[in-house]
Design a protein around this nucleic acid. Structure first.
Length: 441
RNA sequence: GGAGAGGUGGCCGAGUGGUCGAAGGCGCAGCACUGGAAAUGCUGUAUAGGGGCAACUCUAUCGAGGGUUCGAAUCCCUCCCUCUCCGCCA
């Protein structure tokens, strides 16, 4: 949420940056509302002061011997009642205006950072870095896409998943399920070594949590909702982790707080019919390890670089070529002030695909979720950052395509071998045996 | 799900319808004492919003929302949460 003081004092400081996002906004009406709200507050609090004065005086007279029901205090009581009525009216008006104000303020996106390059769409994003050598088909070789490989290996069952749930869900089997689990552990371990605290939060979150991180009220149709409860399936761990400290005032010495949270993520993907229908790229349910920082405002820029490097470290450890894009203003997400996207090379598809999105949100989420820190004698809103480290399904897709062999197996990067328990996925692979004997009940 | 108890400042904890933003303690900060520290003493120490260059000041907040009253931490109603016991359960 944007600062109301900006709105009252100089709305051009909002409309200017929003114009860079491609939004032509007229805030004059909203500004009037904000001014009116302040005006009402002032009048109301003056009345309340008067009411408090009268209340005190009644008390004093009674203590001095006046009869509580007598003539002497009757006039004062009537005055008190009049003021109470007026305060009630003003409060009602104030509430109405406040509600309108918030409604409109809550659907305005964050202001892009001055560092964020201007642009209209993803075509204007800026590539800032490339790492690794993308695998391309050698002579006579035909590289397959991950869903073809997965099908051949029998590690993903799409059709039966429709029976269980719907389209855009998958069931991982055998080596596939084990690889997913290995990746999650691998990522969490690596981040843990880099100073992140591991978090395993609830994946059902309430409305206040989704509002705090920016998904609500504007993007209700993007999330699954539980009909009988005030609960939603979280679209990203960013939501519960933001709310981990919602309403808190943190000590300056606690910052930065760095969390690595694994959760399944649930997205309705409304409006994406027909896109990425095969494989692991776009699902209603997918696993993700999310990196999240709470930092002092002075440190958020450096934190953004570090967080992005931490996500990149996973790609590098997995020997997956990638590039880093800086998103332009036109492609920025709702809560973000500045974003780097990491795109991994999909050897079979012969293209880079987004696998991580690392954003700094400035104080946008902190204001919505009321998260502050003690800075000397005062408290200030802190800054929040988040980034995928990484999307697990897409990581698996990239690994399958990168490691595919002529004999049908898929070689895995060395770093993953201790987690997976083998150097490759093999067509004849004994899924149950590889997965160990830890059968559940 | 049933029964009971309870939610007060960073923490513990007191609180009679009026002078209660709230005793006392702990913690923390500053000062004094000290060679330095401990101990001790003194002083200060919530958050949000509005006004003011500032000193300061007004309002709100004792789980949340309503109500009674001139006046509510205190009385009434609704909801939420926590704890204990019972039941059920991975």
């Amino acid at each position: 949420m944007l600062d109301q003081r900006l709105l009252r004092n100089d709305p051009t400081l909002i409309t200017g940056p929003l114009a860079r996002r491609g939004m032509a906004t007229d805030l004059s009406g909203l500004r009037q509302l904000a001014l009116e709200a302040r005006d009402l507050e002032q009048r109301r609090s003056e009345l309340q002061a008067e009411g408090n004065r009268i209340g005190k005086e009644v008390g004093e007279r009674i203590r001095a011997g006046a009869a509580p029901g007598g003539e002497e205090v009757k006039e004062l009581r009537e005055q008190g009642n009049r003021i109470k009525r007026q305060v009630g009216e003003l409060e009602e008006q104030e509430k109405g205006i406040e509600t309108q104000l918030l409604e409109q303020l809550m659907v305005l996106p964050n202001l892009p950072s001055p560092l964020c390059p201007s642009g209209r769409s993803e075509a204007d994003n800026v590539e800032v870095k490339r790492w690794g050598s993308p695998r391309v088909a050698a002579g006579g070789e035909e590289l397959q896409e991950h869903w073809q490989i997965a099908e051949r290996l029998g590690i993903v069952d799409t059709e039966r998943s429709v029976r269980i749930a719907q389209s855009r869900f998958v069931t991982l089997l055998g080596q596939g399920a084990r690889l997913e689990r290995a990746l999650i552990s691998f990522m969490l371990d690596r981040h843990g070594q880099r100073g992140y605290t591991e978090v395993l939060p609830p994946v059902l979150v309430n409305t206040a949590s989704l509002t705090g991180s920016g998904q609500l009220p504007k993007f209700a149709e993007e999330s699954f909702r539980c009909a009988d409860d005030d609960l939603w399936l979280t679209p990203t761990a960013e939501v519960p982790v933001t709310s981990l400290h919602r309403g808190e005032v943190l000590g300056a010495e606690q910052l930065p707080l760095k969390y690595a949270a694994y959760t399944p993520c649930f997205r309705r993907e409304a409006g994406s019919y027909g896109r990425d229908t095969r494989g692991l790229i776009r699902l209603h349910q997918f696993n993700k390890v999310e990196l999240y920082w709470f930092v002092a405002p002075e440190d958020s820029e450096a934190a953004h670089e570090q967080l992005t490097l931490d996500a990149e470290a996973i790609l590098e450890a997995l020997e997956l070529p990638y590039r880093r894009l800086e998103l332009c203003t036109g492609d920025l997400g709702f809560s973000a002030a500045r974003t780097y996207d990491l795109e991994v090379w999909l050897a079979g598809a012969g293209t880079y695909r987004e696998i991580s999105s690392c954003s700094t949100c400035g104080d946008f989420q902190a204001r919505r979720a009321s998260i502050r820190f003690r800075d000397g004698k005062t408290t200030r809103l802190l800054h929040t950052l988040n980034g995928s480290g990484l999307a697990v399904g897409r990581t698996m897709a990239a690994l399958l395509e990168a490691g595919q062999q002529p004999d049908g197996s898929v070689r895995l990067p060395g770093a993953l071998v201790p987690y997976f328990g083998a150097e490759a996925l093999t067509p004849a692979g004994p899924p149950a045996a590889a997965a160990g004997a830890a059968a559940g009940r």
